[in-house]
Write a protein that binds this DNA or RNA. Sequence first.
DNA 1: CTGAAAGCGCTAACAA
DNA 2: TTGTTAGCGCTTTCAG
Lengths: 306, 306
Amino acid sequence: MSPDIRSTVLSAADELGYRVNLVGRALRQRRSSTAGLIVPDFDNPFFSSLAQHLSRTFAPSGVDLLVFSADDDLDTELRGVESFIGRQVDALILIPCHEVGSERSITRASESVVTIQLDRQVSSTQAHFVGCDNAHGMRLVHEHVAAHADSNDPVIYVGGDPESSSGHERLEGFRREFGADRLELAGRFDANWGFRAAQKILDLGYESATIVAAADIIALGILSQIQAGGFRVPGDFRVIGFDGVGVSRLAHPTLTTIRQPVEAMSEAILSMAMGDFPTESVRIAPSLVTAESSPTGRFHTRTRSS
Amino acid sequence: MSPDIRSTVLSAADELGYRVNLVGRALRQRRSSTAGLIVPDFDNPFFSSLAQHLSRTFAPSGVDLLVFSADDDLDTELRGVESFIGRQVDALILIPCHEVGSERSITRASESVVTIQLDRQVSSTQAHFVGCDNAHGMRLVHEHVAAHADSNDPVIYVGGDPESSSGHERLEGFRREFGADRLELAGRFDANWGFRAAQKILDLGYESATIVAAADIIALGILSQIQAGGFRVPGDFRVIGFDGVGVSRLAHPTLTTIRQPVEAMSEAILSMAMGDFPTESVRIAPSLVTAESSPTGRFHTRTRSS
DNA sequence: CTGAAAGCGCTAACAA
DNA sequence: TTGTTAGCGCTTTCAG
């Protein structure tokens, strides 16, 4: 068509305030230029960070990323899946709430739309997966501790929810690297659990240790409680986190942590959502970020002045 | 119709795997049983917390809350508005990125759908608003400081973005309560700004003060940097935050803060989204949460041992 | 109560 | 190139 007619029509449309109705378009095209992301919880800063990075990654693609919170509830999660499918999202990205219980949601989703599990993998399904190589992360932790900690110093693991695949894999990784005879505490992925775990460690009489936490948010709780108990970090206790997003820099002292490759994960998700599947499952290696809570340079157990 | 026919049909539908196509329904009904929430950024824990509370509040209503991140960008924000409107959301809730620049988005939204500004108000629009009474919050801060701090101790304000209405209102509130002759630093709503502000305060030679921060996330940065500088909280410096969500309990020491009434705000939004507008604008009074960083009981400026 | 038909706004396909 | 038509899946309406 001629360019001037084109512009006349366009400006007339604009003048009349015409906007496409995307619902009509979606009905006709049987696709909506929309991707859905279901997170268990916005309050977990790692999930928020994933949501933020994904939003940024999707923006240039023309696909709008819409996010729904499952509020850590399996029924709500399933409702989110049904809602997104009913709205004809072109892809569904899901951070499952639960290693077993989320199977229903994943199965339901994957029989209707391209479905990608993020961060946590439900073992019984074979939907696509993108996440971090937790075993490798624990290997990095072990290398760091071996290189810099006093070998007589106890190493303690403060885990997250063992019923999520990330909690589960990190625990296994820890055992493989450090042996199965260490003190291990299992809990939840939140700061309160960190508080309680640290209190437990102090109650058991520890005055020095390297504490490996399954998530930064747990490590923050640990740091706070350890210092409230009058101990010093890294003087008495060393603390190492996992995730490496935002919060780890808020800590005092700053947190040594395993940084998840959030950008690379987001890119992988985008290309999968666009229909490109090099492999079923993508695991990207994380990296170690050394900071004050477990510094470089061999350190020795201090004797506390009583 | 007869109940047994009903159940026969229902089970047959279920067996065949029938699911309503919500796009078709939305097209016909001209509504989608969906509300849109646009946040500037998932990484700000206060926004995440609002998103989480709103999700929980909306869940029982049958309306799905879908969240979109504007990534702190006005064009992306507008795109989110267009997308939600094109998808026929029944209500649009917006935390504006910018006190002035978000006007376009708000205007565009409010001419097509029930639009509610949350937390930050764009002055030039008259769309509905739900937020916290920032002036009242600063009054509570003043009462607390007057009751418990040494009256000779300097009071310093570390602000957020003065171009957002919340940053702006809190600064005004601070001035009204404490006078305009205090040290005031203006910055951004993030932890890094807190670090830098604290460094500035120490560089200026302060060895003791009560620091009022415009947000908890800023206060966390301040706490970290003050303590890294070898000073004690609350021994040398007192720190008071604003928001009172999640992160304030992660701090070490725990943070005295003004707690925003997030639940009440969410309820107000839900009823507005359902079409009930008691008033144009709702401001709910926050409350003071006293913790270790600025405790109860009159405290005195300590002389530091050098 | 049951059945048929129209039409929400859009685009893909086909005809002129 | 331009114009027409059919139909995406649903619900509302109106007739039987």
